[in-house]
Design a binder for these strands. Sequence first.
DNA 1: AACTCCCACAACCGCCACGAG
DNA 2: ACTCGTGGCGGTTGTGGGAGT
Length: 232
Amino acid sequence: MKMEQDEIRKGPWTEQEDLILNNFVHLFGDRRWDFIAKVSGLNRTGKSCRLRWVNYLHPGLIRGKMTPQEERLVLELHAKWGNRWSRIARKLPGRTDNQIKNYWRTHMRKKAQQKKKAMSPSSSSSSNSHSSPSSSTGKVSFYDTGGPDMKKSGEFEDEKGYSMDDIWKDIDMSEENMIKPLTDNYSEEVCDIFCPPMASPSPENDYCLASLWKMAEESISCFEYGTSYLTG
DNA sequence: AACTCCCACAACCGCCACGAG
DNA sequence: ACTCGTGGCGGTTGTGGGAGT
């Protein structure tokens, strides 16, 4: 495939890029990322645009620390589903899979370090401490507590057969007293909260719409296609 | 005050699934 | 049925800021 005319931008997003992306998502919706990437003139990949929107610009996002309830929910759901971050995220309104993943990563690192300290390093063979039960299958992240062995196997509501690795077992046991079993309070209704209608363009967003359209027009030839969205 | 460590967050990469042609 | 393009997901890395020493 032919590369874009300009070099694809990488790295941190600027405020202006955010603004442009925001406007184009409002215009075209949050599905057609490759298209948005092209017409916006951002010189970003569609993937990058999507990620920026999902993880940062989405109006429903909650920023800041996880609440104890959320932490509990993450632990509970991870025990149930493993590293299915997007799935877990759907049960936490306003949280992204990236946020949860990051939280889990630091959380587990902390736990792993605590555990390491607790266990005398001299008493155990070091190789053993690093080899997960699934060592034969290849690399497993230290914070990957496994979950059901359902890699790309579709749904896995059935919890039978879910075996946690050593770390998770320890953590689970240590926290069992804290984590009250959850009922189905985190059912689908929670998810609905996180799906607000597309925010209406604010006045401040309008200021550059004209220029944005001009950019889009110059960028590709399918301008009319976009206008059909506006005019209905 | 300077330095180090840790945490939270942002972003990229690679792989896979799915739909369109 | 096959190929290709795109989006979604999970893994990983880089970085800035705050806390601790």
